[in-house]
Structures are given as C-alpha cells and as structure tokens.
Design a protein around this nucleic acid. Structure first.
Length: 661
RNA sequence: GCCCGAGUAGCUCAGUUGGCCAGAGCAGCUGUCUUGUAAACAGCAGGUCGUCGGUUCGAGUCCGACCUCGGGCUCCA
C-alpha cells in the first residue's frame, strides 16, 4: 500500500502510511506534541485528530499552547456539560452549545419546565469532572438526514436545527446543509449532533468553571420558547483560567454600582423610579468637571450651545417619525389642557417626554432662513432625554431611563459632509483620549432591514460617507450589519478600558431623513434653496454611562483633574491644626479641592479613611512641617515623602491637573 | 417584556422546622485619648424586617400581587 506525504506549516514534509491520522502524525514527530495536540487543521479546516489524512494535505497540528485550541477545547467541554445535564435530568433535552469568548454555553429544556439553581451548578460540575476522569473518547459518525432525525427523536431542538439547515438556513452553525448529519458518541447512551471537530477524549479537558445560568430564547428570538442556559468559562491551561478569574474578581471590585455607594457618588433612590439616578455632591463634582471640559472643547471646535425643554406636543414626534419608529422606547403620553367636563380621553393635547433631542435642534435651525454661509451649523446641548427601557434591561448608570446626552446636530451641505465627518471623528477621539481612554475600534452600523425610513440609495450614500471617514482614522473597523437607527447609518466608537473590556461610547450618524421630514432648506450661492444634511453625534453617548465607564476604568481612583477631593490635610495632633488649615487655605487659593481631617482620631485611621476614599494625595503635617513650612506627601500608589516644601507640592499637583494624570 | 434569584439599621450580613423584648461589624453621634503615615477606648442612638393583602391563636419566617435590585435572553446611549 502506498504511503502518503503531508506538509507542515514550516514547509517540511512527512511521509506516513496510508490511513494515518493527525494523531499518528503528531506521534511521529514527538511525544510531547502528541500529548499536547488538540485538533488538526487540514488545508485550513479543523479536523479530529482521529481523521485519516490524505496525500498532499497541508496539516497544522493545534496544541494547547496555540490560542486556536481554545475554541475546540471549549466546544468539547460544552459537550461534557450536555452529557452531565442529560444524565442528571432524565427527560431533559438540549439545543445548541457553542464556544464563545472566554468559554461556552449550552441551552437545555428540563422536564416539566424545570430550571437550574445555584446548587445544580455544583452537581453538574461534579458530574462533568467524573466524565472527564473517565477519559471518554469522542467518536465521530455520520448519518443521512432521515436516520439522524430518528436518532434525535427525543430531541426536538436538534431536529429543528436539522430542518433549518435542510431549508438553507445557517442553523446557527450547528449542522451542515449537505444532508449528512455528523454526530459524536461519548458513551453508548450519550450522543450529540455536532459538526466537530472534538478533542480525542474527555481526559484532556478540565480547565473550566460553570459561572451562571439563566433563561435564553431558542435561537435568540422572543417568539421562540425560553430555554435554560448554563454559561462557563474555559481555557486551554489552568494558568489562563486562573488569570481570567482574577480579572473577573478585579472587575467586580471596580463595579461602578458598588463604587458609587462606597465613594458617595450617586444613587438610585427607589422612591424616584427604576433607572433614574441622583448624583451626590462628590459625584456632582466629577460630572461637572467632565461637562465643563467638554463644553470648553466644543466651544473651541465651533459648536454653539442651545437648550430645549424635556417635553413636547406629540405633533413634533409625528413629524420626526419617532412615534412611528421609536414609540416602544418612549414613555407613555400624557393628556394636558383637557377642557373642563371632558371625559373623552382624546380631548386636550397630547405631550410626550422627549427620547431624543434632534427635533428641537431642527426647529432651531428652521427658526429663520439659513444661508450656505451659516453652514456647517453645529448645535450642542447637554440634553436630558427619557426612554422607556424594558424592565429587565435597566442596569446601573450604563442603562437608565433618564439620561443626559452630550448631543450635537451638525447641519451641512452635502459637499461639506465628508470633511465634517472626518473632523468630527478626529475631534471625538481626541477628546476621549483626554478622559483617559486611548484604545479604540470603530463599528459601522448599516440599514436595519425592517425598520428604516428613506430610500436604499440615500442609505448607501450616507453609509459610504461614514465608511470613508472611519477608514481615514487608521483604526480597526467592524461591520454591524443592520444595526443603524431608523433614520440613518452610524459609526460608533468602542473604547477598551483599563482591564480590557470594551464599551460603546460615541456615535456619529448621517441623516438625510429628518431634513426632508421637516423640510429644511438653506439658500446656496446660486440663490436657490437646497436641502441640508444632518449629522447626529454624541461623544459621551450619555453622561451617565460615560461617568459609569470612567468610574470602572479608574476603579474609582479619579485622576487629579477629576477627583472630587484632590488633597486631604491631616494634622498629626491638634497643635498642628492651624497650620493644616493654613495649608488647605493656600491650596484652595490655588484652585484645588482640599479638606482637612482634624486629629479626633489616630493618624493611622485617618490615613486609612483617606486611602479608602481614593484621594490622589494625603498630606500629613506635624512639628517639623510647622517649623519649616513643609508637608509630608502621601501620594496614591506611591511612597511617602517627608519635608516637601508646600510650594513644590502645589506645583506638582498643578502639573498633574494640567496633564490630566 | 420573558426565565431565575434576592429584598432585615446608611453599608455588609446573622436571624434555626412560624413562638421569649430582631442581633453583629463598619459608618453616625457623645465623651476620653493628642497621635509622623492603612483600624485608640468607652458609651449612645439607629429597624412599621421593600409595599399591600392573605393564611394562622401567633408571620422577618408560609401564600399572592405589586415595587426595587441582581444574573441571563431580547433590546440599547
């Protein structure tokens, strides 16, 4: 029988006997490679180690050291989860269980509408580890559709995936559409439908942890039944799993909801209502500083400031299209000016809380005749809007029902638009950097197929203009098909924070629609009327969300320019109080935010409290300092320095503020 | 909105199968202590146990509805 020859990524070739598998190949190269091999890629396509190789195959062996192995290990561990659940809950059925970032999930339906509990996760985990200890093989086999349906007779969701694939749907990648269904058998009783590949056996798995459980609609649609999903994190190595869990624990400590209470920044009094925040004095300082700086920069960039009310007659949102397209996101209407004695609900005038600021800015544009000389006209407002968010989605400051947008609408000619978009994007990124975020990527959201006004051609032009601006930035650009607003496509800026999480921040949207709906015009150099184009843009997105992101990014330890309290002066004993007050007064005179903590408590305890409040600087003053007009400087995250002249400390603080460190 | 879980003092939590006057630490207040870099000591005060209704001789504890929060789905700045 003829041998086969395969090539490896380094260009070398190896000759193996006919019928040799990826595992054989690995074994022929080295013991360690054989042990660490997870799957192989043949001509770029992942395959089981047990699959026979063919003459001329280009083969890459993926080991646990290769990041590409994670997906396969996760996928295989998901099967172990399914096996454990099906063994523990006789009569349970399962749907899909794909690998995801950091881990995997699997969807189940338990008998009699059962649900999982926290304790169940422990039982399942224990069962999974038994399966792994048993080192069960993953054995692949294939069946024609009819036989496959019969094999999965007790599992309607698996059959649903087969039917979807048969009708040309992608079936969430669970099955192929070629009429042959592949399965993996672990034990005589456990078989899962799967495209594969899988690890050779369960023994190599184990670096996982079950994390959460919750409801999830089948295939993500509200119209489908709700299944019970279990999430897990999983990594090729134990060290990676540990690191991930460490970062998670860190993220929990940074949670802005927790820090908001601890640092006395803001709260959500139950009496006010879900998703409605109040900012306390310390949070108020931070917010005001954020806003003040933003105002200054916007002024310098040619924006003009406007103000508009929070509520308006329904007609305005009829004209804008919001009542047609965005009504679900709006608070219910209120009837006002109802005539005495009228019991007809339709009598009077209908008002709405505003969910967006654009119509108001449009009315400002339209308040008089505009010339091309006025354009681009950039109207800016910290506009507070109200959105009726579904009860299950409200979340801290990042998803609220009342928020303030740093909202601007730019009215331009069509010719000006590309430059204006590029300028806006540059401005936005620059400003975000000043707030300490500097790792970005961009996302381009296109026409939502079922929910869009305007013609395809208009959408196309707007989308291309945005794409051009985005591509000019030299940042990664991700396509978000169908994710645009009803009136136009958008670019959103995604920022990565200090511990690597990405947040959607700024959005820039092109809008041909509202200028038409409101019949906006300007007079061009030719004396004729022309239609302007609108650009909607928000940089913080919402001030509340941005505030929450900054709290998490800085873990509550705001840089000096934003810190609510920059310095706290601690006299060692009462005899140093007058000097401490003098130091504080002098620093305040320099424009700094300073408090004094008198010697009612031990110095150690006052230091501890100040550190807990995450101040940039704690100053300790005692006999030596009174005598020499110095201070002891205890900086956040640094070493204590004694006998620092007050003047040089003030300069240092000034430098921190100026450099926004 | 849907699935699950939770709501006890400002915060973090105890409170056994329904049964004496609902507890602790931190925070707060009052004293004493007068401190050189991450917790001095003592005392005081603080709760209609989320709200409303029900079961019961008796409810923080059991049941229902609503409100709020947390985790997930869907949605989103």
């Amino acid at each position: 029988m003829a041998d086969i020859t395969v090539s490896l990524p380094d260009g070398s070739e190896r000759t193996l006997p006919q019928g040799a598998t990826g595992a054989d190949l690995a074994a022929s190269i080295g013991k360690r490679l054989a042990r660490d091999a997870v799957v192989v890629e043949v001509d770029g396509a992942p395959r089981d180690l047990s699959a026979p190789l063919h003459d001329g195959d280009r083969v890459r062996i993926i080991t646990v050291q290769d990041p590409a192995s994670a997906e396969h290990l996760r996928h295989s561990t998901a099967h172990v989860l399914a096996q454990a659940v099906l063994e523990l809950w006789p009569g349970a059925t399962f749907a899909g269980g794909p690998p995801i970032e950091h881990g995997f999930y699997y969807d189940f339906e338990l008998p009699d509408g059962g649900t999982f509990t926290e304790d169940d996760l422990e039982r399942i985990d224990a069962k999974m580890r038994e399966i792994i200890a048993a080192d069960q093989p993953f054995e692949r086999f294939e069946l024609p559709l009819d036989d496959a349906r019969e094999l999965m007779a007790d599992h309607p969701y698996k059959r649903a995936f087969m039917d979807l694939a048969a009708s040309g749907d992608d079936a969430d990648g669970e099955v192929s559409g070629d009429g042959v269904i592949s399965f993996y058998r672990n034990t005589p009783t456990f078989v899962d439908m799967c495209l594969g590949p899988h690890v050779a056996s369960t023994g190599g798995l184990g670096n996982f942890r079950l994390t959460r459980h919750g409801g999830a609609y089948f295939r993500g649609s509200e119209r489908n039944p709700m299944l019970q999903r279990i999430y897990a994190v999983a990594f090729p190595t134990a060290a990676e799993l540990e690191e991930h869990l460490r970062v998670q624990a860190e993220a929990e400590l940074r949670d802005h909801r927790r820090l908001g209470v601890e640092l006395d920044l803001f709260s959500f009094p139950e009496e006010i209502g879900s998703g409605l925040a109040v900012f306390h004095p310390r949070g108020g300082i931070v917010r005001r500083l954020m806003e003040d700086y933003s105002r200054r920069r916007h002024e310098e960039a040619g924006y003009e400031f406007v103000y508009s009310p929070h509520i308006t007659k329904a007609d305005l949102f009829e004209t804008s299209g919001h009542l047609q397209w965005f009504a679900d996101g709006m608070f219910p209407p209120m009837q006002v000016d109802v005539p005495d004695g009228a019991d007809d609900g339709a009598a009077g005038t209908t008002y709405y809380l505003k969910p967006m600021n654009c119509p108001f800015h449009i009315l400002i544009f339209r308040s008089r005749m505009r010339s091309y000389r006025d354009l681009p006209l950039r109207l800016f407002e910290f506009g507070t809007v109200y959105r009726y968010e579904k009860s299950g989605v409200v979340h801290g400051l990042t998803r609220v029902r009342g928020m303030t947008q740093d909202d601007a609408h730019i009215f331009t000619t069509e010719e000006q638009m590309p430059d204006e978009l590029a300028g806006t994007l540059t401005f936005v990124l620059d400003l975000l950097r000043d707030y300490g975020l500097d790792d970005f990527h961009l996302e381009l959201s296109t026409r939502p197929p079922e929910k869009a006004v305007g013609t395809e051609a208009e959408w196309e032009r707007a989308t291309e203009a945005l794409r051009g601006a985005a591509e000019g930035m030299g940042l990664a650009l991700v396509l978000d098909e169908g994710g645009g607003a009803f009136y136009g496509p958008k670019i959103s800026v995604q920022a990565r924070d200090a511990i690597g999480r990405t947040w959607q921040m700024s959005t820039i949207q092109v809008d041909f629609q509202l200028p038409q709906r409101f019949d906006l015009t300007y007079v061009g150099p030719d004396g004729e009327r022309h239609r302007p184009i609108m650009i909607h843009r928000a940089l913080f997105g919402s001030v509340e969300r941005f505030f929450g992101v900054l709290v998490e990014h800085y873990a509550g330890a705001f840089p000096a320019w934003l810190a609510p309290e920059q310095v706290r002066v601690l006299p060692v004993a009462d005899t140093h109080l007058d000097y401490a007050l003098e130091v504080a007064a002098q620093l305040r005179g320099g424009g700094f935010r300073v408090d004094v903590a008198p010697a009612d408590e031990t110095l150690g305890n006052r230091i501890r409290r100040a550190k807990g409040d995450k101040l940039p600087y704690v100053l300790v003053v005692g006999d030596d300092d009174v005598a020499h007009r110095t201070v002891g400087v205890n900086p956040r995250g640094g070493e204590v320095e004694r006998d620092v002249p007050l003047g040089s400390f003030a300069e240092r603080l000034h430098g921190d503020v100026e450099s926004k460190r």
